[in-house]
Design a protein around this nucleic acid. Structure first.
Length: 878
RNA sequence: GGGUGAUUAGCUCAGUUGGUAGAGCAUUUCGUUUACACCGAAAGGGUCGGCAGUUCGAGCCUGUCAUCACCCACCA
């Protein structure tokens, strides 16, 4: 016996373990491979709703294709998350009262980091299992494991040898807190209030002549090496070539003419600090200006001979105040303007202001690599779903700047480059090879830096399959089929995987990129810890079950729109799980047991034929929806089939036959069990736990649904005559119910029904479904008639008129009103359609079937109108 | 500044070649007919953001405006 409710808490864990122990998640069979590369969550990560959505969708695709006979590989793993992990380990050291990172040194720190990774890293992997997902955990990888590290070395060396990785001294985005370079993408501009200070610089050799510049970062003036004006700016024609005396430092710097300066902005003159501003850097290069770096790695003022001693060692923001104070004393600060402007912050903590900083770093020549990556999408070899995200992709890959890949961190892949004492670089996969390049006896020192985490992530699509070895998995599973991810990672990851995959594998990494929504809270706010609106998927699973969470996410996942997740949605879909459970319980109580010998094509009873046909339609529509990545349609279609069609209509239709053991009882039992068995299969990709459990209890426990074959139906299961018949009966029942409720007929009252104008078909239908109609419409009797008794309630369902002779219990005036309302609605309809049909243009240009349809509409409406007005007349005469 | 998306019932959202607007939740009324009150039956509720255009016909196509969200770039 099934329990009162589905106890998901007891069942989920047990089931999951049994699946995993049976090795069902690994690729099996000899079908056409289907591959999904799991976006590797950070080892530092904890499960959030975004992961839940991402993994639910991947699991639905994987389970569906696995059942369809594909040899599925869902390749899982985690990412070492350079910055995040290093920060986390540093925090832990502090908490444990251990020496700081720099005090203990690189080797000791890395030991701690690995220990942390082994002990508490990857907790997220265990959490993911709670969702019931089926990646091949036996193939789980880590971006810093041995194989992937080998791939990274190989990739770096090849790119270097091909001239696509190089070292360069240029401005990078510098994180003064972590003391490392970061990439452009890791910088987030934040709009905030600030000040624009206008400063005048005295022109050398002139008395009381100044040139005014403006800046939001006055401390950088200590590193100014020029003032630029526009070459065509008449105001400054005479001063170009002269110098200004840079206040505070007393250095002489030239006034240069450069297009960069915009005469419309400010005074038209702009200070040039090549070492601390990206635009100024370019100006500096054009005019061969010196580049004076004024900051240490912590963004404190450096000890420099041109900078007065009192500034040495000051933090950048303290220095700003001091510089302003001094300028004011010198009477050079002429204006302070309040403005709003964008300030660069690090995208992780959003608290540290990023500083453009002149250093030597490693770069990948992404402008070159991006070209084939863009072309592959233009050629349709990889497509984005929804397609609009291709624009975002193009915008990024078509405007590539070199990618700074070196990080001054310790946790990560150390760059395989060695230097001799003269600084000459040797790049090789091993120290031995580097030594061989350098020659015997040369002392080599390895580059301290590590690679950007995304460098190894960019190799994920093939490094996890054994590259650079010629692994059989590479041949079999590359390229992957679908990448499921969210839009915010297109630039970080998707585009870089495209670039590296095309370069190393000469083929795209995946055919489809499905971009899903962001999950927001019920008010449309991004979930964040500081806002306190985070929904923990584990809590939701505890409360509603994994199936309910999965179904909810799937049902809300329409293309190109964010998801607002509210708990009442989860409640609703938890109820759906219960509904399916109760329907199964009903089947069990009524001995509707699954019969493997039952062939649905042989069903004789029309309601059975109908529900079997509906099952076919539901399955087809689910398949189509999943194939088109329309997850919401897939979920909602099955929801309506199970609840709205099967439970609300079919089970109610057949109840009477079952309890009276009518002539169709046996076939009904088999059909009921068959339809349920099919819903378990169809719903399994979305709701694996409850369906697996019910399948085992009610159908067969010999085979897990995970590896059950997806049903293939014969289209002959759809019998249009049966569908029409049942749909008409449903209409009759609905109409009677509606009229009864409208006229306040007590719900419990059983009333007689008279049917007028019944043709042979409808007469037969009323006879065949007599019991069903009586039960579902609460009727006492059904008879045919030509005469309408006085004061009866009438309603039309073409071609018949339904008569409820209950004058004594209804309000006749209310009934008259109801009929009048109906008539005026019909008149509106007739008029609207007639107008169209009388329009010459319409008749001439509209397709024939549209016209025929309109004509039929009009005829039907007219016929109904005649009958309803006859009913009204009778009522008024009475 | 460049770009993308959104605007449909009280709320959250569907609406796939243009053919008289749908769901879930919420609301109201009725209902314990032994699967299910995490239920059943029924009802109310929308000039599909504004304006203009194309078309026999527009929620859907075109233009424009408004509001909101996001992406990229820049800011002396």
């Amino acid at each position: 016996m099934l329990d009162k409710n589905f106890n998901f808490k007891d069942i989920e864990e047990k089931l999951y373990k049994s699946w995993e122990d049976s090795g069902l998640f690994s690729p099996a069979g000899d079908g056409n491979p289907y591959t999904i590369m799991m976006p590797p969550p950070n080892v530092t990560g904890i499960l959030h709703v975004g992961h839940a959505l991402n993994h639910t969708l991947q699991d639905i695709l994987i389970r569906y294709h696995r059942m369809k006979g594909r040899k599925t590989l869902w390749q899982p793993g985690t990412d070492h998350a350079g910055i995040a992990t290093q920060m986390m380990v540093e925090r832990k050291l502090e908490k444990d009262g251990l020496p700081k990172r720099k005090e203990m040194g690189r080797e000791a720190f890395l030991e701690h980091a690995w220990q942390w990774k082994e002990e508490s890293g990857g907790a997220i992997v265990g959490q993911l299992g709670r969702l019931g997902t089926t990646p091949d955990w036996s193939r789980e990888r880590f971006t810093m494991d041995e194989g992937l590290s080998k791939a990274v070395l190989k990739a770096f060396v090849s790119l270097y040898n091909d001239g696509l990785i190089y070292k360069d001294n240029r401005l990078v985005n510098w994180h003064p807190g972590l003391e490392t370079a970061i990439s452009d993408l890791e910088v987030e501009q934040k709009e905030q209030k600030g000040k624009m200070w206008h400063i005048r610089y005295p022109i050398e050799g002139e008395t009381e002549q100044f040139i005014t510049v403006a800046t939001t970062r006055p401390e950088t003036m200590l590193g100014d090496t020029a003032v630029a004006v526009h070459p065509d700016d008449a105001r400054y024609k005479d001063v170009v070539g002269k110098s200004v005396s840079l206040p505070i430092t007393g250095r002489l710097i030239p006034i240069v003419a450069d297009d960069y300066s915009d005469p419309e902005k400010g005074s038209g003159a702009v200070k040039i600090t090549p070492a601390h501003d990206f635009n100024d850097f370019e100006v500096g290069k054009r005019h061969d200006l010196p580049m004076i770096n004024i900051f240490t790695r912590q963004a404190k003022i450096i000890e420099h001979e041109d900078i007065p001693k009192k500034y040495h060692g000051l933090d950048r923001f303290v220095a700003r105040k001091e510089v302003l104070k001094e300028l004011e004393e010198l009477d050079l600060l002429v204006e302070i303007e309040n403005i709003k402007h964008a300030v660069p912050y690090d995208e992780k903590t959003k608290t540290v202001v990023i500083e453009p900083f002149l250093t030597e770093q490693w770069f990948v020549d992404t402008p070159t690599l991006a070209k084939p990556a863009a072309q592959a999408v233009r050629d349709g070899r990889t497509r984005f779903i929804p397609q609009q995200y291709e624009n975002m992709y193009f915008q990024w890959v078509d405007n590539q700047l070199p990618w700074c890949i070196s990080r001054q961190l310790w946790w990560g892949h150390q760059i395989p480059a060695w230097y001799d004492k003269d600084g000459k670089v040797y790049v090789a996969e091993t120290e031995e090879e580097a030594q061989a390049q350098a020659g015997e006896g040369v002392t080599l020192t390895r580059d301290d830096d590590v690679l950007d985490t995304w460098f190894s992530s960019a190799l994920w699509a093939f490094s996890t399959l054994g590259w650079p070895d010629k692994a059989p998995e590479l041949v079999q599973y590359y390229p992957g089929d679908t990448l499921v991810t969210s839009f915010d990672i297109i630039t970080f990851w998707v585009s870089r995987m495209m670039m590296f995959s095309l370069y190393f594998m000469d083929d795209v990494p995946f055919k489809d990129v499905y971009i899903h929504a962001l999950v927001r809270d019920k008010n449309g706010q991004k979930m964040s810890k500081t806002k306190g609106n985070v929904m923990d998927p584990l809590d939701l699973i505890d409360k509603y079950g994994a199936d309910a969470l999965r179904f909810t996410l799937c049902a809300l996942c329409s293309q190109g729109r964010d998801i607002r997740l509210a708990e009442d949605r989860l409640e609703g879909y938890r109820n759906f799980v219960t509904k399916l459970w109760n329907a199964s319980k009903y089947a069990e109580m009524n001995k509707c047991n699954f019969d493997p010998a039952f062939n649905p094509a042989t069903a004789k009873y029309v309601p059975n034929q109908w529900i079997i046909g509906e099952t076919f339609k539901a399955a087809k529509s689910f398949e189509k929806s999943i194939d088109e990545y329309r997850f919401n349609d897939a979920a909602n279609g099955l929801y309506h089939f199970v609840w709205g069609t099967f439970c609300d209509w079919y089970l109610e239709f057949t109840k009477a036959s079952l309890s009276s053991e009518g002539e169709h009882a046996d076939e009904i039992r088999k059909t009921t069990a068959w339809v349920l068995s099919q819903t378990y299969i169809l719903l399994n990709p979305v709701m694996p736990f409850v369906t697996e459990h019910l399948y085992a209890k009610r159908v067969s426990d010999e085979e897990a649904l995970i590896t059950k074959e997806w049903p293939v139906y014969d289209v002959a299961l759809v019998k249009n005559d049966s569908s029409q018949q049942i749909e008409w009966i449903i209409k009759i029942i609905s109409e009677i119910r509606s009229v009864r409720a409208d006229m306040n007929v007590p719900a419990g009252a059983k009333i007689p029904l008279l049917v007028k104008d019944a043709c042979e078909n409808s007469r037969n239908a009323f006879q065949n479904y007599n019991e069903i109609l009586k039960r579902m419409a609460r009727l006492e009797s059904i008879d045919f008639t030509d005469a309408v008794p006085k004061g009866a309630l009438q309603t039309v369902v073409e071609p018949v008129t339904l008569i409820l002779p209950i004058a004594d219990i209804i309000d006749l005036d209310a009934e008259k009103e109801r009929l009048k309302k109906q008539l005026s609605k019909l008149e509106d309809d007739i008029q609207k359609v007639s107008q169209q049909l009388e329009n010459k243009n319409f008749v001439e240009r509209a397709p024939a079937e549209v016209i025929a349809e309109k004509e039929e509409q009009r005829e039907t409406a007219k016929a109904t109108h005649a009958k309803v007005s006859a009913a009204l007349e009778q009522l008024e005469a009475a």
